[in-house]
Simulated scan of single mutants.
Amino acid sequence: MPSTPPLDLDAVHHSLADWFGVRGRDLPWRRPECTPWGVMVSEFMLQQTPVVRVLPVWEEWMNRWPRPTDLAAEPAGEAVRAWGRLGYPRRALRLAEAARQIAEDHDGQVPSTYAELLALPGVGSYTAAAISCFAFGIPETVVDTNIRRVHARLISGRALPEPSHTAAEARLAADLMPRVDQDNGQLACIWNAAVMELGALVCTARSPQCADCPVSASCAWVAAGRPAPHYVPKGQPWEGTDRQVRGAMMAVLRLSDEPVAAGTLLGAEDTDAATNEATVGLVTALQRLRDLPAGPEQRQRCLDGLMADGLAVDSGRGIVLPH
């Protein structure tokens, strides 16, 4: 079995930076004219959601709310409605809450430091680092699933990273960051974006294109003969889950201009009356919800969960999106 040559980390840094300069996708939140708020919105939307689904929603969002103060002036329910089918709609609520905090505590400007960002609703360690790096050029260590996979293959010789982010992986990511004392961290920020892009386009989970990889000659996994993963990843189920039922209920609430009877969401009432004045989209959403093979107990649990999470509110006349 061939051995991996000693890693020339500086050469790897520059090879990936050069590759990214040519092959990196032209995404609107990467363009120089994009504001820190645009970067922040993209980071919220891209959590567990692919770029192709995020792009149209991000563009509509930024046209409607180009500044945090614009979103802060709207009811939180409008953010949830505009979130559409991106999934995990609590992200929309947290983003609306963050916009209000930015308006109140930061004079309407997205803060630039990691600590200030981390204090915003919905912003965890990854999102704070990503916004600092990609919006402000501050070289924080950014680690997402794509980056973890590239690091696992390139350095550790494994097909996949561990099932959950480990302290060892965090240390490795920090150790791999380019030095910041020569170019004020510019290469380090490019490195974060380039490794992420390599994982998204080339070093993918299921079909890695090693022949197209600019650093394959330095890859420990390639040198080891591309061994199989050391565990079998478990996909997330969807059919029949609470997530599916909650999503169907949220689709009805987003599309309805009027309060929706709880019984309609629970399938305990005939939906014909609710659809008399409805749009085609709402009729379809109601039918999909009614057709789900979910029993009364599961439906009640899902509705209770939406209300506990603040994604739905009982207005007294029916269930609506939050105010």
Results as ranks from 00 to 15, higher is better:
A72T: 06
E162N: 11
Q186F: 09
E78F: 10
D105A: 13
A130P: 03
E116I: 00
E78W: 07
T113N: 09
L86C: 13
D105P: 04
S156Y: 02
M196R: 02
T127G: 07
S132F: 06
T113L: 07
H151M: 13
H106E: 07
A173D: 06
G84P: 04
L71N: 08
A96F: 04
P163K: 02
M177C: 12
A211F: 10
R94W: 08
N184W: 04
A167Y: 03
C133R: 01
A96Y: 01
T145M: 15
I190F: 10
A99S: 12
P178F: 06
V143F: 03
G122S: 09
L154H: 01
I138S: 09
R94S: 12
T141Q: 06
R179T: 10
P163W: 13
A99K: 01
C213L: 04
A152R: 00
V123S: 10
E197K: 02
E162F: 12
C189W: 00
M177N: 12
E97N: 13
R90V: 11
M177L: 15
H165M: 11
L117M: 07
A92G: 07
G137R: 06
P111S: 06
P75L: 05
G77K: 01
R179G: 13
T166K: 13
A129T: 06
N192S: 12
I147P: 00
P208I: 01
N146P: 15
L201E: 11
A72S: 15
I102N: 02
A174R: 13
S112V: 00
E162G: 13
S112G: 08
R91A: 03
N192P: 04
S156C: 14
A152P: 07
G137Q: 11
A168D: 14
P178N: 05
